[in-house]
Design a protein around this nucleic acid. Structure first.
Lengths: 344, 344
DNA sequence: GTCCGCTTTCGAAGCGCTTCGACGACAACC
DNA sequence: GGTTGTCGTCGAAGCGCTTCGAAAGCGGAC
């Protein structure tokens, strides 16, 4: 392995010149710089990561805390880990994976040994032990998700409340009067997964505000049929369904409705909100306000890096506005109702 | 942040004594050691990771290369990443996640900057560019999966060939004469995903050897019905199905068979082989030879660490013998057939 | 009393890089 | 001609740890 000393000798300069030529932190005469870079290239020189970390007091590594629960949705889980890693990489950072058994320990360890410059925290619960730890650590961390107590934290997430409100508003405004929400299963809800609660509360509140009847169901299995049965029991004139659930349940919704002689959007309008999967390939695609792992992770990683490099550790909560993708699964209920203005 | 110097001063010893007390690499008088450790504890001393790496010339980090394809199975993907990380952690190593865009670059980078001590390579294709790169790098790497050319590589995987043979043997030995294989979709197969090929080839060969008729189908959608239709077209007297496919297809198999008035194991025996999901909670659980992410990753990480710390870089291919879990989904075809001896 | 060997501890030399202060050369200015 | 400033480069001091060789202290053998 060639070291900076080898490059310096081969190029006939001092090691500090090599360092500055490579980092660009001081001006170096153009031909010296070119010669140094060419020499480095020729020798296959790659700076030694730990030497660089030690000298620069910066590891260019971020830790990603990603707990796994029995009810974790694999696709979502993976998408967030991957997107966080990708974004970090484009910013010059590598990512260290912290798994659950090790969540608190791992944060503690990577922070106090200064292995990581910062921490991204995924899959946040309403009452999350990692939030308490994050406040103590003097290593910046960003939460992707909003715990109940955000005091002193930096958080980023889709604005689930706004997504719920927009879904209800859009349905109410186009004349729907009985809206069913198919939420997530009880397990993650009980655990306190933050966004399910946020969506649910905002949905219920907005239905009250708009004076539309509503019902909520938490599916048990993978099929939507049981959920649809439940909803129709509470709302015999069900005319809209909002989905904030997994791909399995969502993909079987049309079939489940058909079992009751209901079709989308003729008898029932559907909006999927805050979901990671795409409904594009469904037999009947649904209007969607996606939970975009890429957007969330990019925002989170950028905030983290701004805290590391820019020193901006101001606690704050950033809510990303939902985007409404119209796929024609919402149809006005009253004949002659003015055509909908396309939102977004 | 307390450093080793702070601990040394507070404990009234030299820094080398602190170092040895903590690492145990030289004997230190018991009461000195205790005093040092107590002081370190009291000061909240954690050795600085990069300083340790630099001095010891060892990062205690392994990189995990995990490409993502459009056809990647999320659950499997996640299980392997998590298990690799967990095992590494129990051995004192952290894991760096290398995502696809960055697969070759990432390996190159983490190896040549000595950021990683070794590399675990997941989701291996038959013709994998990472295999070529691994041969050049002087950083040890272990493949979880077997590429076509294993020259100079260290590889670990479930013995898919043996799993296929055992499935066929067991079915043939209990009188089955028409075995259908539901394999994976075409996409990963075309891409060259190594284990699908290995299973497939061994299955076909063993059917020929045992003189049983066979047919193979690659499902298109998530439902098994279409695959069952195909199999029944080729094998009207289908009496057994071997599954080497995803959870979606597998979970709908019983229903799909029922559509043809076939039940498991009455008319059709079923064995799932080389699968990551459990069939335990299926309405009809299937006999399974699981692809155990934990076992594979443990073997791989241990092999890697033996290469790093033990210096054992001998190229080799380790095939993990399949375990047969009997759940009663295989029933002898001929009345009076001697009861099966439990394999496994 | 001397020498040997053992245990326990220390000092110092790195590991490979970054970065600060300084220095030499040269041009510009009064 | 001296002063000032700028540019390009160098030397050396770290960053916080590991590890090697050696020294100090001590008991036992001769």
């Amino acid at each position: 392995m060639a070291t900076i000393v080898d490059v310096a000798e081969a190029a006939g300069v001092s090691i500090s010149t090599v360092s500055y030529a490579m980092s660009g932190k001081r001006s170096i005469k153009a031909d010296t710089r070119d010669r140094v870079l060419a020499t480095a290239e020729a020798l296959g020189y790659r700076p030694h990561a730990s030497a660089q970390m030690l000298a620069a007091q910066r590891s260019h590594i971020v830790a990603v805390s990603e707990p796994v629960h029995p009810d974790t949705d694999d696709a979502t889980h993976r998408a967030f880990a991957m997107e966080a890693t990708k974004t970090a990489r484009t910013r010059g950072y590598d990512t260290l994976l912290l798994v659950d058994d090790d969540a608190l320990d791992g944060m503690q360890r990577s922070a106090s040994t200064q292995l990581a410059d910062g921490i991204v925290i995924l899959d946040v619960d309403e009452d999350d032990a990692r939030a308490r730890l994050a406040r103590e650590l003097d290593c910046p961390s960003v939460f992707v998700g909003i715990p109940a107590d955000t005091e002193g934290l930096m958080c980023v997430d889709l604005d689930f409340e706004e997504a719920a409100r927009r879904a209800v508003d859009r349905l109410a405004a186009s004349g729907h009067r009985e809206i069913g929400l198919i939420s997530h299963r009880m397990a993650p809800l009980d655990r306190g997964s933050n966004f399910i609660h946020r969506f649910l509360r905002a949905f219920v509140a907005q239905c009250a505000r708009r004076r539309v009847r509503h019902a909520v169901v938490h599916p048990k299995g993978h099929d939507a049929l049981e959920s649809v049965n439940h909803l129709l029991h509470s709302l015999p004139d069900l005319d809209a369904v909002v989905l904030n659930t997994g791909a399995d349940v969502a993909s079987s919704l049309s079939t489940a409705l058909r079992a009751h002689r209901l079709t989308v959007p003729r008898e029932v309008s559907v909006i999927a909100a805050g979901v990671t999967f795409s409904t594009e390939d469904f037999p009947v695609p649904f209007d969607t306000m996606p939970l975009d792992a890429h957007a969330s992770c990019t925002a989170a990683v950028d905030m983290l890096i701004d805290a590391i490099d820019g020193g901006n550790r101001e606690p704050r909560v950033v809510l990303l506005p939902p985007t409404y993708v119209d796929r024609g699964s919402v149809r006005p209920r009253h004949p002659g109702y003015p055509p909908l203005r396309r939102v977004s």
